[in-house]
Amino acid sequence: MRNLTGLLFAGGLGFMLLAIASGLDFGAPPMLVGGAIQAAAPQETGATNIVTSVVLGYRGIDTLGELSILFAAAASAGLVLGRRHTTAGTLTEGGFVLKHGGAMLFPLLLTIGFYIIFHGHLTPGGGFQGGVILAAAFFLPLLARPGARLHHGMLSVIEGFAGSSFILIGLAALSEGEAFLQPMLVQDALGQLVSAGTLPLLYLAVGLKVGAELAGLLSHLAQTESEV
């Protein structure tokens, strides 16, 4: 009975929403704000990737909130899972190919991760995407050698300093008499690697924080799993 009502409810909801959504003008959005941002972004922020301008400039405080959410999730997971590192290496080690493949991939992943972070204001990608790749670089060896440990102290130092430097860059603008998180030092070099003022710095902070956060979360989960 419960199943039937649940199904009917979800189906009904879906159809009702579909009926309403089909009235929307698909493919020709109003773009009130989006259009204005497209027109103004290259001059105001100096980034060719307009999504980056939105993520770090126009909606910068959203990004700060999002970093805080990741931090809150990692801290909560740490609280829940605790700090016990007792039973190590109960899982079998990976084979030759896995171990050495993982080791070889590490520098490559690191390079591409930082490349994506540093080009976030020019091409698709940026701090979040690059950060995830960095996290993968550190997590991959853990999959190959379940006994290995990530240095949690190091990770929390990186994530703390990355997060606080994001805020410090914002506060620097405030102390210069501008608004919090206002882009500064915007050079007239659209499309160059060194351009867009403080945005690449912000993205570097985001990338490091996301990388440290995810690597910490994953290794926490992996360790706990090997305890069960």
Partner: peptide
Amino acid sequence: MVDPVPQAMVLTAIV
């Protein structure tokens, strides 16, 4: 170009 704002929002929502 497509609207950049929803793309930024989705990035946030995914994270």
